[in-house]
């Protein structure tokens, strides 16, 4: 399996680690609602088909990526950057401005 890292390009699975379900929502820290925290920590849907999940390019740029993967065929529909750089979808143009 290959992932097209928006920063590093087409790289083999060995460079990445799976980091879990990316559809999970996180309560704010001031929330003391045990139910919603329990959902965040323990409840997973385990869908057969397209799934959004976190992958970290741990042996590369170390960025967290949101990968849309079909769990039944392993085909990758989309790879996006998570976090502050969200929205980057293609390798950055590293050429200096002319």
């Amino acid at each position: 399996m290959y992932l097209n890292c928006p920063f590093c390009g087409h790289r083999h699975l060995e460079e990445f680690t799976y980091e879990g379900d990316a559809t999970i929502s996180w309560p704010t820290l001031d929330s003391q609602d045990i139910g919603s925290w329990t959902d965040t920590v323990y409840q997973r849907r385990n869908p057969a088909g397209p799934h959004r999940e976190y992958w970290q390019h741990v042996h590369g740029c170390r960025q967290f990526l949101i990968v849309e993967r079909d769990t039944t065929t392993h085909s990758i529909h989309k790879v996006e950057v998570a976090g502050p750089w969200a929205g980057e979808t293609a390798p950055r143009n590293t050429e200096a401005k002319q």
Binding site: E19, W26, Y54, Q56, A82, G83
Partner: peptide
């Protein structure tokens, strides 16, 4: 390290 990186990427991306 991974735990902290995850939190900054997935949970609190607004933190600089």
């Amino acid at each position: 390290m991974k735990h902290l990186e995850f939190l900054l990427a997935a949970v609190w991306p607004e933190l600089k």
